[in-house]
Amino acid sequence: MSLAVAKKGAITSIGPSAWRPAVVAIAILLVLAALPSLVDPYQTVLLTYGLIMAIAALGFNLLLGYTGLLSFGHSAYFGAGAYTVAFIVRDLGAQSMELCIVGGLLGALLISALFGFVCVRHTRIFFGILTLALSQVLWSLAFKFFWVTGGTDGIRVASAKLTLLGGFVNFAGPGSFQRFVFAYYYYVLGLFALATVIMWVIVHSPFGKALQAIRDNETRASFVGISVRRYRWIAFVISGAFTGLAGVLWVPLNGLTTPDILYWPFSGEIVFMTVLGGFRTFTGPIVGAVMFNYLKTYAVASTEYWQLLLGVVLVVLVLALPSGIVGTAARLAARFTRGTS
C-alpha cells in the first residue's frame, strides 16, 4: 500500500493511478510470502509478531492519524481480544482459531464500544487521560481477579491444540511447534493483508473523509452536518476491533496472556510504533510496528537497559524525524522526483 503525501505531510488520497500502489502492495506481499522459506523459524516468528502489531497500529492510527484523537489506552482492546481467546480456549475448550477470532472480536468490540462511549465526549488531553484510566481499570481487574484471569501467572493457550481454517490445519503429532510457526505465519499474513485492505477502504471512503474533516476542524464538520461525537465513537470502535484482532492473533503465538498486555506501557508501545513509522501516512504504522518489534527484540537481547535505549530512540525520532520513517522517506522521494523532473 502506498499513498501520496501532500504538502505538510497530510494524509491524502492516492492519485488517479491507483494501480501503482496495488502493484507495490502485491510485490511486498509476494516477498513476505516467500520469506519463511528463506529465513530461519525464529525470524519467521519475529515477523509474525511484527505483522500482528501492524494490525494493532493500523487500528490505533484510525484514531490518531485520521480522527485526531490520541489514545493512551489501546492495551485495553488488545487485552480484551487476547483474554477473550484465553477464556474461550480454557473454559469452553474451543480449538478452532476462527471461533477464537469471532469471540475475541466480540470481546474487543464490547469493551471499545463501552470505553469509547465515555471517551469520545472529550478531546485532546482529557480524551488521552480517560483512555489511559479506563485501560488501567481493565488491567487492575486482570491483576486482582486471579481466580478468573490467573493474575500475574496469566492464562496459557497451547498452540498445539488449536486448529486453523475450520479444522483443516491442525498441529497434533511431532514437530508441532515448527509446523504451527510456519502455518500461523501465513494465517497472520492473510489476515494482515485483509485488515490492511479493509482499513485502506475505510480511510478512503466518505466515512473516512468525514473523520479527516473532524480531525481538521470539528466545528466546521458539525456545520456541514456531521454528527462529530457519533463518528468519533464509530471510529473508536473500529479502531478497538482492529487492535482486538491483533490481541487475538498474538495469544497463540505467545502461548500465554498476562496482565502486561493490559498495562499502560503496552499502550505506549502502540503509540511508539505508530509515531516511529509516521502517523500522517497510511503505511507508517505498519512499517513502524515491524521496525519496533525488531528494535525491541534486539534492544532486549543486547542490554538490560533496553527501555533507556528505546527512550533515546524515541526522543531522537521526535526531534529529527517528526513525520516518522515513512513520512520522511516520502518527502525525500518527492524531493528527489522534483529534482530529476
Partner: peptide, 30 residues
Amino acid sequence: NLFDDLTAFDNVALAIFSREGKTRNIAALA
C-alpha cells in the same frame, strides 16, 4: 473555517456527501 489538510475538492465533496447522507458509507471509495 476549512478542513485545512484536505484538498479544495475534498472540502466541497465532503459537504455534498454529508448533505446526501453518504458519509455513513464506509465500504466504498469516495
